[in-house]
Nucleic acid binder design. Structure first.
Length: 802
DNA sequence: GGTTAGGATTTG
């Protein structure tokens, strides 16, 4: 925001950048440059915010010098100011009549209203490059009186705003004093990606400099990676709030302290000034922009600063260390200290590259590529501490690998058997262990210029026509950049929890196999049914193994009202005590209804009057309402003068928000008193048993289409669906939260309208069996078993606002 | 209310 409201009571001059000098209003004239000048005055008139075409704004105001030089003539003390665009909007909101403002970055024009208002012959025009600092007297203690005063004295209906964010001051690196807490800006001249320290945190070490030419080392300790400064390359500009100065080896060093936060910026002159941060709220204004731009142009003029270079694969020299921007296509663990990253940058390295052979089933991402693409792929071996970071990488991620080493000749590659020879006369790429020289890997964000450059190069890449279809088709999957979901990031994967000791196979292998087998696969979810997830919920009878849909509410309500009309005389069973309950009318003015209830005499005698009622004559809606007051409600009707359960097309039991159904085929429902002796909780099982009802189980049934590099396969998710989604189907039937959880999981595995590149790879255990139902004999079916979702919900943590 | 690191090429 270009309008800065400074602390209550602050006086002009205190926080305006020091390089600006004030010009008296009376001295303003056309044909003079005012690039480093300010004017100061009290707002004596503030016009309304006027909307212009194309979403633009204009606002006019008059400011008056209130501590003017004695020799100024009175008519030149006040000057019209014209504000345009966002500045006008901000001014309208943040500035009140009576405030003292300091303006900079304005241009001077001839005042068209001079003849009319007899004010200054010039006006000040403030647009994009201008800045307005607002000073305001301390507020009276009672906000009500303040508002009243304001209303009576302002011309427009502006919102009076207390300053939201304090103004930060930044100490030049040459002026740092030991043992203080400061805010600083600097150009990064050295940095390491965050690495795990021996203590509790990750550590970023960096060195920064500024116009004072001091080079200051910094150590940033944060547990969470996202709180660390997002430094991509030397020359980036960093702003840090709340770092403390300490002395080490006679030099000032900076360490983060309580409330630390950092913004970083691309250090290239001319690029957009976009702060990089994980923090959801931070202070950033025209002054910050100016500081960043000044540091950029200063750094550009400095020859002593290290040059920023990345090297494309086409220019890599043997024996050199270099930084590589690339896209990850596939990765595979080699052993505990080494991981293979298969990357490309769209350029061809002139040297023969190392080939590393790994089992296809340990590879994440495609295990083979078209010949043409294969010739562009570099195999990067990352060691030791980088293995842990490599675990987090996904195929299709854009990476910057720092201090990668190109090693010519034959090297031994760990994990290879003797039959898998390593080519001699090749170039191998190693990311050695440790963090010396900033060695490490960073995932580049989608909006980074480096990523955009890579994408441009990839766009120019076409597959050979004679390539095998399966490979080239799948390339599209891998060339697709990852989705960047807004807000909370949910990363999903799956984990097998079976005891099978078998290696993963491809889907084409699964398709060829006989029923009665178990397979492990690594796949993506390409589609699922039903799309209306409530339709995935079914009722299952474990006795006759039948599966049925849950009756819809309309049908159930109809059966209830039909039963409620049957109001013939009715003799309750001898074990029951009968009574009545009033149910308030549904709408205002509709009369209360009196319903018959019957209770177990046994339970009554134990004082358990709320635990179970048999309810007669109610509608579905009334039953649901009463379910809030009674733990168990069994709807009953009068049948041939006796009390009987309702037809099993409707729930035989309501327990809170949960409804329970019985199997029509396997139940012989009669009304009996439950034996609740020694029973702590009367639940659906006890009641079902008493009523002779075969309880139906809620289950989830989905049909999923899986895909990998070789094929697609339709599988069922049923027997272990609850394990898979980590919810109970009964909860899904009753509560929104569980439904949302299932929906969210499915949508993360298979984003609606999303590209396949954003879909996670899933490790599944499949059983293959002979389907017998539905008259389709001998059909081979597949089912996901022994597999559970692992959901990493990375809610953006909220560091202290900066 | 503050240990960790405090740059400085490699086992492969």
């Amino acid at each position: 925001m270009p309008v800065r409201v400074l602390s209550d009571g602050a006086r002009p001059g205190a926080q305006v950048p020091a390089h600006l000098t004030r010009v008296p209003i009376s001295a303003i004239s056309i044909n003079t440059k005012y690039s480093n000048k300010t004017v100061e005055g009290k707002v004596v008139r503030k016009g309304p915010l006027v909307f212009l075409p194309a979403g633009n704004f204009i606002l006019k105001a008059v400011i008056q010098e209130d501590d003017s030089p004695a020799n100024a003539s009175s008519h030149t003390l006040s000057i019209n100011i014209v504000l345009l665009g966002a500045l006008a909007k901000d001014f309208s909101q943040a500035v009140n009549q009576g405030d003292v403002v300091v303006a900079s970055g304005f241009t001077v024009g001839k005042s068209p209203t001079f003849n009319k208002d007899k004010l200054h012959p010039c006006n000040l025009q403030l647009s994009e490059d201008a800045c307005v600092y607002v000073f305001r007297l301390p507020l009276p203690p009672d906000p009500k009186s303040l508002l009243a005063t304001k209303r009576s004295t302002t011309l427009s209906t502006e919102v009076f705003r207390r300053p939201k964010t304090p103004k930060y001051t930044y100490v030049q690196l040459g002026n740092l004093k030991a043992r203080s807490v400061v805010n600083v800006y600097g150009v990064v001249v050295f940095f390491k990606q965050p690495f795990r320290s021996r203590g509790t945190d990750c550590c970023s070490t960096l060195k920064i400099t500024d116009q004072s030419n001091q080079k200051i080392s910094c150590s940033i300790f944060c547990d969470k990676l996202e709180d660390h400064p997002k430094i991509f390359q030397i020359g980036d500009i960093i702003r840090m709030h709340r770092v403390k100065t300490t002395l080490f080896n006679d030099s000032i060093t900076l360490v983060n302290t309580f409330g630390f936060s950092a913004l970083t910026f691309d250090g290239t002159v001319g690029r957009p000034v976009e702060p990089r941060t994980s923090s959801r709220s931070f202070h950033f204004d025209q002054d910050d922009r100016r500081i960043v731009e000044e540091l950029r142009s200063w750094a550009a003029s400095q020859t002593v600063l290290p040059a920023v270079t990345t090297t494309p694969l086409s220019a890599v020299q043997p024996k050199s260390y270099f930084d590589l921007n690339c896209q990850l296509l596939a990765k595979a663990p080699i052993d505990t200290t080494c991981t293979l990253l298969r990357v490309w940058d769209g350029t061809r390295c002139p040297h023969t590259l190392l080939k590393v052979i790994v089992e296809p089933n340990v590879t994440e991402g495609p295990s083979s590529f078209s010949k043409k693409k294969e010739s562009l792929i570099a195999n990067v071996l990352v060691y030791d501490n980088h293995v842990e970071f490599a675990r987090k990488l996904k195929p299709s991620d854009f990476l910057r690998i720092y201090n990668l080493r190109a090693i010519p000749g034959s090297s031994k590659v760990p994990g290879l058997t003797s039959s898998q020879s390593v080519e001699v006369d090749h170039l191998a790429f190693h990311l050695h262990g440790g963090t010396a020289y900033g060695r490490g890997i960073r995932i580049l964000p989608e909006n980074s210029p480096d990523v955009q450059e890579l994408e441009r190069v990839f766009e120019g890449f076409t597959e050979d026509d004679d390539d095998e279809l399966s490979d080239s088709d799948l390339l599209d999957v891998w060339s697709t950049p990852p989705e960047s979901p807004g807000g909370e990031t949910v990363q999903c994967g799956t984990e097998r929890c079976c005891s099978h000791d078998i290696q993963p196979v491809t889907l084409s292998k699964v398709k060829q196999s006989d029923p009665g087998r178990v397979h492990h696969v690594r796949v993506q979810l390409s589609s699922y049914e039903p799309h209306m997830l409530h339709q995935a919920l079914k009722l299952y009878c474990s006795k006759c193994t039948s599966l049925q849909d849950i009756p819809d509410d309309e049908l159930v309500a109809g059966l209830f009202s039909e039963a409620s009309r049957d109001s013939g005389a009715c003799t309750p069973p001898p074990w029951a005590l009968s009574g009545q309950v009033d149910v308030p009318g549904v709408s205002l003015g509709s009369s209360n209804r009196t319903l018959h209830i019957h209770l177990s005499a046994q339970l009554m005698s134990e004082g358990k009057t709320k635990e179970l009622i048999f309810l007669r004559g109610s509608t579905l809606e009334e039953t649901c309402r009463l379910a809030a007051s009674y733990q168990n409600i069994v709807p009953v009707r009068s049948s041939e003068g006796r009390l009987a359960p309702l037809d099993l097309s409707v729930p035989f039991l309501f327990r809170g928000r949960k409804r329970y159904y019985g199997c029509k085929r396997c139940s012989e429902a009669v009304l009996r008193e439950p034996t609740a002796e020694g029973v702590q909780v009367i639940d659906e099982k006890i009641i079902a048993e008493a009523l002779g009802v075969q309880l139906l189980k809620f289950v989830l049934l989905m049909k999923l289409e899986l895909q990998d590099a070789t094929d697609t396969l339709a599988v069922f998710l049923w027997r272990d669906a609850e394990l898979f989604f980590n919810v109970s189907a009964e909860d899904v039937a009753a509560n929104q939260e569980a439904q949302n959880s299932v929906r969210q999981t499915v949508e993360t595995l298979c984003p609606p309208g999303g590209s396949t590149g954003g879909r996670p790879w899933l490790d599944l255990c499949l059983t293959t069996y002979r389907g017998e139902d539905d008259g389709v004999q001998n059909q081979t079916c597949h089912q996901i078993c022994h597999t559970t979702i692992t959901k990493l919900s990375c809610a953006q943590s909220e560091p202290e606002p900066t």
